[in-house]
């Protein structure tokens, strides 16, 4: 299976996040997951489970502290895919 690039991961992550947020909002790369999208800690965990299944990776919870924006999230996924 070809390794998805940044843009493909971003598009997948945007789709995935939309499934978890109640109100339609514009998702930009610099949108903050918690403050911008209103994802609470439980929803963040749900999103991570979905990301792990979608990309067949681990998303260790200890890396969460460094993730604030959608871009941070996508870059971390890219790192995990890259191994």
């Amino acid at each position: 299976m070809p390794v998805p690039d940044y843009a493909e991961i971003l598009a997948d992550v945007e789709d995935l996040i939309r499934r978890f947020i109640k109100n339609p909002v514009t998702i930009e790369e610099d949108t903050e997951l918690v403050n911008g999208l209103g994802l609470d800690s439980l929803l963040v965990m749900e999103v991570i489970q979905e990301v792990e299944d979608r990309f067949d990776i681990f998303f260790p919870l200890n890396t969460l502290a460094e993730i604030r924006t959608v871009k941070d999230f996508v870059l971390q996924i890219q790192r995990e895919i890259g191994g």
Binding site: M45, I48, Q49, D53, D56, I57, F58, P60, L61, N62
Partner: peptide
């Protein structure tokens, strides 16, 4: 305790042996 340990923390879905196996395979 997991956070304090500094180890990589990986969760599996509650009471799901299927998800646990998936994670063990990845490990």
């Amino acid at each position: 305790g997991c956070r304090m340990s500094g180890a990589d923390i990986i969760r599996f879905r509650h009471n799901s042996a299927i998800d646990m196996e998936k994670k063990l395979k990845r490990l």
